[in-house]
């Protein structure tokens, strides 16, 4: 009770017995905090309405608005071409799934090669390093052009000329280099004492990797990997340059027929419908991972 009144002259200076009641001082503090919060909320609402509202009025009443909305936001036309774009987007989704899973497997393999110390793997380690340096440094569009147009030009026996397959291979080649580096950085962040503990228990190098190092490493790099997945979905649109009818290409065809750009806007919306939820999910995963690391730090 001494704590409530701020009067510590009681018999027991540390009386933790009774039911706690906020002091009048604390109540006044809370009331004043609440008042301040309410005032802030009102200011935020008012300023948002004024700024965003006047921005909208300026845009809509400007002389170019009519032609702008006719060119980019012709909704009736947009709805008309939407089925074609969605059909094309199916290609992007399939491409993302195939490329994504291949990249995961290949990226992990290369990350493991680059972090291994086995002398027998030295040539592979050198090759992986060169590969990663090379394909992280070349624009993906160039890789797509090189693979998609270059390989058919070789007229090799038994090698496909299917641009969809070649485009997918080009995407895989580029993304594997990025993902391998993300996974490798994750492996390197696991503290050496974890390896020491595992090896001192008699686990082999491979068992240590499989049960101790990789689970911790992959958990840490999940947010950046999800980030790469979002980028991958968008970048599958680049294979349209080879003539693959994906969402981008479908929009391009419709648009070039009518010189109206609404199909591009529709394609953008279709991409956003997938990428925005995925981005939110990535943010949440990142936040959770940070919380988990902080919890470990406190322990």
């Amino acid at each position: 009770m001494g704590r409530n009144s701020g009067d510590s002259s009681g018999v027991t200076p540390y009386d933790f017995g009774g039911q706690w009641q906020p002091s009048s001082h604390e109540l006044a503090r809370r009331a004043s905090r609440k008042k301040k919060n309410n005032r802030n909320a009102i200011i935020a609402t008012l300023s948002s309405v004024v700024v965003l509202g006047s921005l909208a009025i300026v845009v809509v009443t400007s002389p170019g608005w009519k032609s702008l909305s006719d060119t980019f936001f012709a909704w009736a036309y947009g709805v008309e071409v939407l089925p074609k774009i969605i059909l094309g987007f199916g290609t992007n989704v399939v491409l993302t799934l195939i490329a994504g899973s291949s990249v995961a497997i290949l990226g992990l393999t290369i990350a493991l090669l680059r972090t291994s110390r086995s002398p027998a793997l030295t040539p592979f380690r050198i090759l992986s390093t060169i590969y990663v340096d090379l394909f992280r440094g070349i624009p993906m569009l160039l890789v797509i052009l090189l693979v998609g147009f270059g390989i058919p030009a070789l007229r090799l026996q038994g090698v496909t000329n299917n641009v969809l397959v070649l485009g997918t291979i080009a995407v895989i080649i580029t993304y594997t280099a990025y993902v391998a580096e993300v996974i490798r950085s994750g492996i390197l962040t696991v503290h050496p004492s974890q390896r020491a503990a595992a090896r001192s228990l008699g686990l082999t190098h491979f068992q240590t990797l499989r049960h101790v190092i990789l689970p911790q490493a992959l958990r840490r790099v999940t947010p950046p990997l999800l980030n790469d997945l979002v980028a991958l979905i968008k970048d599958t649109g680049l294979v349209s340059i080879l003539g693959v009818t994906d969402a981008v290409r479908a929009a391009q065809i419709s648009s070039s027929r009518t010189f109206n750009y609404t199909p591009y806007v529709m394609a953008a919306i279709v991409f956003l419908l997938i990428t925005i939820p995925l981005t939110r999910f990535t943010d949440r995963t990142l936040r959770k991972s940070i919380e988990r690391q902080n919890a470990q730090g406190n322990a």
Partner: peptide, 10 residues
Amino acid sequence: MVFQAFNLFP
């Protein structure tokens, strides 16, 4: 072997 910093697998 037991270490100063425990080194349990988190």
